[in-house]
Design a protein around this nucleic acid. Structure first.
Lengths: 228, 228
DNA sequence: CAGGCTTTGTGAACGCGTGCACGAGTGCCT
DNA sequence: AGGCACTCGTGCACGCGTTCACAAAGCCTG
């Protein structure tokens, strides 16, 4: 199923950093900066300068030796590579707490991912308006996806409903899914899934925290010395 | 003093998978399963069986050859390793859209991370109640963190306020931060930070989506064919 | 216009994580 | 009791990503 990797393949690790560079570049542009070095970009992005240069080199040689990178031009190149030269409307499945927050969160639209629709199985929620978008029934999903040419779906349902939501998205024609439900989704080959699990992040922090304190309970007291 | 509480160091990649195993094991226990093989666990977790065994081997030899792992016991061991044998109360900074959703999202408390408090700089929000927790002023942060022995803070503010929020958390005594704001936080050494950037996840999906379709626009028109 | 300064782009070494393959231990069945 | 089927634990090789180090390339100054 892997037709020859189109043109230059960009390593996954790099792909996940490009959005970070992009944001920083946008901020710098807004501050009036029109040229930036890999050193500075690395500093702002919290990474290594060599990594920045290598990452950017996958896009092509867009820097100028002795000077740095032209901010405006680099922004364009990263956007082009990430496919952000146009908007990607998304559909959110699940109008619960999280779905509402995502719909109301302006960050999506600002960054090129306008919330084109929200659907929910709960008919009592249908018709209500969240973040300027009316909630529609889950049955309308295929029609919504088709008519608005949506490629990306967001699963914001409870865990038990997530697989069903994903199945419906796939059937409707969505090919990329961002999953907030704490389960592993099963999807056909060719469908890209990314997962954001809030509790997992906290559990990872817990591990390092627990390691630091030697496993003593925080609330239960019993910590001997100072916490630092 | 034993600052070097090192014992076995567990690779970061493994640490980030342990919560996934933990969740699956919990589900299986609830289904009445009391023994599970690495193969089955791998299948449910969407990973390789060898990886499961290697991951679990960092905790110790808790499996039984020819049989598998005892679910209940393994749950206990993972919880112990992750420091989940007790609750970790968290404080959320920012009572905006995202902060509200996080407070209302039951998943935190269920998984051992009860929202002990929410604070906001906006005094008009102080006093309102979100998810059963009253919003308090950001000035009260040090007192809240101390009295409730909070180690973990969640930054759910807009980007411009995030660094300030993080600074306040650190001053108040928090040592781990989960950051939802789309910026790179600068914190003193020894403070653990994890970042969740929703837009970045979508941008990564955009990349793979764009590659798949060859860069064709979904809603808007066609791009010029001059790639490279 | 030459020489020095700066910064990119990249070859190469290194380290970590992954996946294979297999020995070792365990339980079951005959 | 002995053999067989099963599954864990892990040594090892491989590949990807990170980092270093330096040559190439552009700018600036005198």
């Amino acid at each position: 199923m892997s037709p020859d990797r189109n043109r230059r393949r960009i390593p996954d690790a790099t792909v996940s950093r490009l959005p970070v560079y992009l944001r920083i570049l946008g901020e710098q542009r807004d501050l009036g900066v029109d040229s930036i070095s890999s050193d500075r970009l690395a500093e702002l992005g919290g990474v290594n300068a060599a990594k920045v240069r290598k990452d950017l080199s996958y896009l092509g040689s867009y820097g100028t030796r002795g000077v740095g990178y032209e901010v405006e031009y680099l922004i364009f190149q990263i956007q082009r590579e990430l496919g952000l030269t146009h908007d990607w409307p998304v559909v959110i499945v699940g109008a619960g707490n999280l779905g509402q927050a995502l719909a109301g969160y302006g960050g999506f639209g600002e960054r090129g991912f306008p919330v084109a629709a929200i659907v929910d199985v709960d008919t009592t929620k249908v018709g209500t308006v969240l973040g300027g978008v009316r909630v529609r029934g889950v049955d309308e999903l295929p029609q919504i996806v088709q008519s608005k040419r949506i490629h990306i779906g967001v699963v914001a349902t409870p865990a038990v409903a997530a697989q069903d939501a994903a199945d419906r998205l796939v059937v409707a024609g969505v090919t990329s899914i961002l999953n907030f439900a704490p389960i592993v989704l099963t999807v056909p080959a060719g469908i890209e899934v990314r997962k954001v699990d809030l509790a997992v992040e906290l559990q990872i922090l817990s591990y390092y925290e627990q390691r630091r304190t030697g496993g003593a309970a925080p609330a239960a007291g019993a910590r001997s010395a100072s916490a630092v």
